[in-house]
C-alpha cells in the first residue's frame, strides 16, 4: 500500500479502567482480556494482546470511561 504498512494498537490507561468488560465483548477480533491484577483504584483492568488490532474503534465507543482506551495508528515506512 504505497510503500506504507498500517498497524493499529489499543492503548489502555490502566488506572482509568474499571474492568466492566464492555470493550472485551465489543472487540470483533477478541484481542482484549481482563488482567488478574488490580489497578490503583482496586479494579481489575483490561489488557491488549499486542497483535491484530484493525482500528475499528468499537472498544473505544463501548468504553464508558472517557480516556481509558485510545486507538492508535502506527504508520511505518515499509520496504
Amino acid at each position: 500500500m504505497d510503500g506504507k504498512k498500517k498497524k493499529f494498537t489499543a492503548a489502555i490507561s490502566i488506572n482509568e479502567c474499571k474492568g466492566c468488560e464492555r470493550c472485551i465483548r465489543a472487540c470483533p477480533k477478541k484481542l482484549l482480556r481482563l488482567e488478574d491484577k488490580l489497578n490503583s483504584h482496586g479494579y481489575r483492568y483490561v489488557l491488549y494482546s499486542g497483535e491484530g488490532c484493525v482500528g475499528c474503534g468499537s472498544c473505544f465507543y463501548a468504553c464508558p470511561e472517557p480516556g481509558a482506551i485510545t486507538v492508535i495508528e502506527e504508520i511505518e515506512e515499509g520496504s
Binding site: 490507561s13 482509568e16 464492555r22 483504584h41 464508558p64 481509558a68
Partner: peptide
Amino acid sequence: GIKDSTHYCPGCGHGILHKLIA
C-alpha cells in the same frame, strides 16, 4: 476524590453517552 476517572460505576451507560456528546 479520584481525579483521573469518572464517578460512574463500572459499565455505566452514562459514560458511553458522555463520550458521544463530548
